[in-house]
């Protein structure tokens, strides 16, 4: 029988509550970024629980691999897909949501009841002896990996290389045409319809130089070209100050 002291009990309960909270948050957040953050919480608490379970190596790996690498990957992909993209909460498949919740609850109930009744009264051995044998937890795991699980370990390396290659192939974008050279690009620019030079900066000849203030052309008319696209799209264009127009007319008449 191992001794689970009060300290561990406190750690367990705190971490258990936090991890369940994180898990529920993960599946209920509307935005993917929030889900990812909730998942990070669960991962970290799980790492703590591993360490509490006499698995310090796995706890470290959990933090490095999950909260480090995997989470970064998730966030990176979320960035690609769009941070703001959020799910609508309307379920499109009829009956899916309540059936899913029902089945999930049933699974939890059955496993909790089954495992609880199966494990009740079974004495736990504890890992003190196993960890001591090779001089520590890391050494113990290393011993196993490079003896009993050597083949599995080698095969895993093949799996990782395949996965890396697969990801590269999948993420690769096909080029249908040769990449245009600088010469071709400049020719296209000067032969094209658009004016090849710079667009007017916002605020030119105007009274303000804020980004939403359109530049005035020499005849006093404002040009929207000087406003950045997103502002134009939102319609955030400041009205042209009539005094500026008059000033230009005066300058002309001189």
């Amino acid at each position: 029988m191992i001794d689970t002291n009060t300290g561990e009990a406190v750690v367990f309960w705190i971490c258990a509550i936090l991890s369940v909270l994180g898990a529920v948050g993960l599946i209920t957040s509307r935005k993917a970024v929030h889900s990812a953050l909730w998942m990070a919480l669960t991962m970290v608490t799980l790492a703590v629980l591993y360490i509490a379970n006499a698995a310090p190596f796995l706890g470290m790996v959990q933090i490095i691999v999950y909260t480090g690498a995997v989470m970064m990957l998730f966030l990176f992909v979320i960035m690609v897909v769009g941070v703001d993209a959020s799910d609508s909460l309307i379920e499109t498949i009829k009956g899916q949501r309540w059936a899913a919740v029902l089945l999930g609850a049933a699974l939890m109930l059955i496993m909790v009841w089954g495992l609880g009744s199966a494990l009740a009264g079974i004495p736990a051995t504890g890992l003190e002896f196993a960890n001591r044998q090779d001089g520590g937890n890391v050494q113990g795991i290393a011993h196993l990996i490079f003896t009993d699980y050597l083949v599995v370990f080698e095969v895993t390396s093949a799996l990782l290389i395949t996965a890396a290659l697969g990801a590269m192939v999948l993420a690769h974008r096909e080029h249908w045409k040769p990449k245009p050279t600088q010469e071709e690009l400049s020719k296209a620019r000067f032969l094209g319809e658009e004016h090849p030079g710079n667009r007017p900066n916002p605020g030119i000849y105007a009274r303000h130089n804020a980004v939403d203030t359109p530049a005035l052309l020499p005849d006093g008319t404002p040009t929207e070209l000087s406003i950045p696209g997103p502002l134009r799209a939102r319609g955030d264009i400041a009205p042209v100050d009539i005094e500026d127009v008059h000033a230009i007319e005066e300058a002309d008449s001189l």
Binding site: S19, V20, A23, V24, L26, I27, T42, E91, Q96, R97, A99, A100, V101, L103, G104, A105, L107, M108, M111, V112
Partner: peptide, 12 residues
């Protein structure tokens, strides 16, 4: 519990 929550999440 965590497994069940995860499964529900996959479905929902």
């Amino acid at each position: 519990l965590l497994f069940g929550i995860g499964a529900t999440g996959v479905l929902v």
